[in-house]
Design a protein around this nucleic acid. Structure first.
Lengths: 111, 111
DNA sequence: CCGATAGTTAGCGCAAGGGCTAACTATCGC
DNA sequence: GCGATAGTTAGCCCTTGCGCTAACTATCGG
């Protein structure tokens, strides 16, 4: 039961927000300043910064401030945790026969 | 900007909770009744049911009630959305050179 | 039919999440 | 040095999420 990994949890929590997922996508194209990133979203800078902090504190991005500009960089390694999690799922369900599945495969009316 | 897919969003939101991820893992081993699932967690049944509903309404599991027992089944297809999302990330960042990355690769002191 | 079992419904409490404004700090450019 | 630019801090609001109890419904078993 359980197997609570705070790391994995943090990553999933960070990815649960569409704004943050968009930031990740954007950063896939290369490092970008906070201001430039924020311009894509209809929220205020302070609100946006919270997302940046969340992403950073969960390890999905790194940021560096040079002068007055903070630049964000994607941390791909961390996304791999999601991959690992998915892989583990697959491993689990490949280990078993699917006989029982058929019992409920055809969707019936909800009670 | 954006590309808001409610489906993808729902899946990530559902996966953001450790209890729900554990349920997914468990269901990887085969269909299981609500009661049996709930026994693994230190929360009350009604609380647990909310997680089940969340998983179901986001398409990660299906459930069928037979007599007084509700049985849950994993819906693997839905997990594939996560896979797709990750694949898209990789596609994006494979399309570019990594020159800029080095600028910030060595962690500096936080401001 | 009656008690036990398996979920369900209703409603409540509280902490966290995501948004905002206002006001402040720290460069940069000239 | 001064104004504009780029973040940052502080504090507030409101909704949502996740947990709980209490009480109810609906099988199942005998």
């Amino acid at each position: 039961m359980a197997q609570y990994s705070a790391e994995v949890d943090g990553v999933f929590v960070a990815l649960a927000d569409p704004t943050r997922r968009s930031v990740i996508r954007r950063l896939g194209r290369g490092p970008t300043s906070v201001g430039e990133l924020a311009a894509d979203f209809p929220i205020t800078l302070p609100s946006f910064m919270k997302h940046v902090r969340t992403l950073e504190s969960n390890g999905l991005i790194r940021t560096v401030k040079v002068g007055r500009v903070r630049t964000c960089v994607l941390n791909r390694d961390r996304l791999a945790l999601v991959d690992d999690w998915l892989a583990e799922q697959r491993r689990t369900w490949e280990d078993r026969t699917d006989r029982l599945e058929s019992l409920v495969t055809e969707p019936m009316e909800e009670s």
